[in-house]
Design a binder for these strands. Structure first.
Lengths: 126, 126
DNA sequence: CGTCTTCTCAACCAAGTGGTTGACAACCGA
DNA sequence: TCGGTTGTCAACCACTTGGTTGAGAAGACG
């Protein structure tokens, strides 16, 4: 019942996927080279199944893809999805910075005016 | 190579906070202007308490801060935290792109060699 | 063929998340 | 001081999440 029906979009999945340190680490290592599930899981001291699940989350978010090589499933980083996040972040950061600039301008103007007029009207005593 | 336990750092909290569309929307609107809890919650058709919780999550992640104005608690965006994400993303994206460049080089070289030598060694027949 | 390797699927569990309602603190305004 | 506004805290609930174990599919290989 949300008035604004925002569906669970890819952006949510991407952020959610990267909210886990283990998955971030996996992504980091995939920037160096593709790797199998076993290789990726080796450092973490969790079951292979758990690693497989992590990779599935990354895959659902579009951050990685899996191919086939005999029994092996090499995992490959899909770096383009990073752009999705970058765009979102940059958009609102720019907007925020713009706002701060405006705020600074307003504050500067208020300062000017208070220096010029020096007088408030009625009740503004603490 | 981190065989060791990665603690739940701020980066995780930031990604996690932004994994929710409602919270992303709140952040987006805070780039326009500070707002009270009631104002922020108005569009969403959820209880005020739920909105308060969302804001707490954003606050724990360092994305917003709350001040006091009588009963009101104006929420303010702390845009610097965006840099944390941007840095992480850019770092690994750059690394990934670098890797793809190297991969291209390797593939080009393999292509050269196969054109020159034209021969694999033993068993590579399907 | 049988066996080992690599990985996924299914069922289960504890902890976390997002929502609810109810109580109430803090403050303004009459 | 009393009532209305604004927001938080606490308890509760359904659902998700990250982990587990067990079973087994799919290949390589002797």
């Amino acid at each position: 019942m949300s008035a604004v029906p925002v569906p669970d979009d890819q952006l949510s999945k991407v952020f959610s996927a990267l909210a886990d340190p283990t998955r971030r680490d996996i992504v980091a290592r995939l920037t160096v080279a593709d790797a199998t599930v076993g290789e990726l899981g080796a450092p973490y001291d969790v079951s292979l199944q758990a690693v497989s699940k992590h990779i599935k989350v990354l895959e659902d978010a579009g951050l990685v893809s899996r191919s086939k090589d005999a029994q092996r499933r090499p995992v490959h980083l899909e770096a383009e999805v990073f752009d999705l996040m970058t765009k979102w972040i940059e958009r609102y950061r720019r907007q925020a910075e713009e706002r701060y600039r405006r705020l600074d301008a307003v504050l500067a103007q208020m300062d000017d005016e208070s220096a010029a007029k020096q007088r408030g009207s009625a009740s503004d005593r603490p």
